[in-house]
């Protein structure tokens, strides 16, 4: 129920931002479209934690701020590798172990790996990700473990309690 309310509020805000109308008739049409969308979503039974992850925002925002710093750092490294007069790269394909059982946490971890330049998740397996890295500098096991722990804490907080 609370996820449904969150989804409805977010849909209404997006409708208003995209249209920018303030007349009563148009606003009521917008409200009607939000209601129809909600009815469809309820009928499809897709309203759960994953389609409305808005209540994780207090932990997701610090995570993505930290990730932004990491992205900036590795971006500069990739930039240097791409602009060297003589290209010198040693690509690597490594298997990164994943310690998470919830889908949301795994998804955010894989997404973070891909979002960080220099590493891309190529294949998702049962308990590991296959990651392609541009140079061996990007494949530190500690870095992946830290990212995994942070992604876990940002989505579930399981790592901290258990």
């Amino acid at each position: 129920m609370i996820y449904g309310t969150g989804l409805a509020v977010v849909l209404a805000v997006i409708w208003w931002v995209l249209s920018g109308y303030d007349k009563t008739l148009l606003l009521s049409l917008g409200a009607a479209s939000v209601v129809v969308t909600m009815l469809l979503a309820i009928r499809m039974r897709i309203i759960d934690r994953e389609t409305a992850p808005f209540f994780r925002l207090p932990t997701l925002i610090p995570f993505y701020t930290w990730l932004g710093g990491e992205i900036a750092k590795s971006n500069v490294a990739v930039l240097k590798a791409a602009l060297k007069p003589e290209i010198d790269v040693t690509p690597r394909l490594v298997r990164v172990p994943v310690e998470a059982d919830s889908d949301l946490s795994r998804c955010i971890f894989a997404n973070s790996i891909t979002l960080t330049p220099g590493t891309v998740t190529v294949e998702i397996e049962e308990d590991a990700f296959l990651v392609h890295a541009l140079t061996p500098d990007f494949t530190g096991a500690d870095g992946f473990a830290e990212m995994n722990a942070r992604a876990d804490r940002a989505t579930d907080g399981r790592r901290k309690s258990s």
């Binding site: 992205i71 900036a72 971006n75 990739v78 930039l79 791409a82 891909t114 979002l115 330049p117 220099g118 590493t119 891309v120 392609h132 541009l134």
Partner: peptide, 10 residues
């Protein structure tokens, strides 16, 4: 692919 990622994120 990595080089294209630089463009698309930062």
């Amino acid at each position: 692919m990595h080089a294209a990622g630089v463009t698309d994120t930062l």
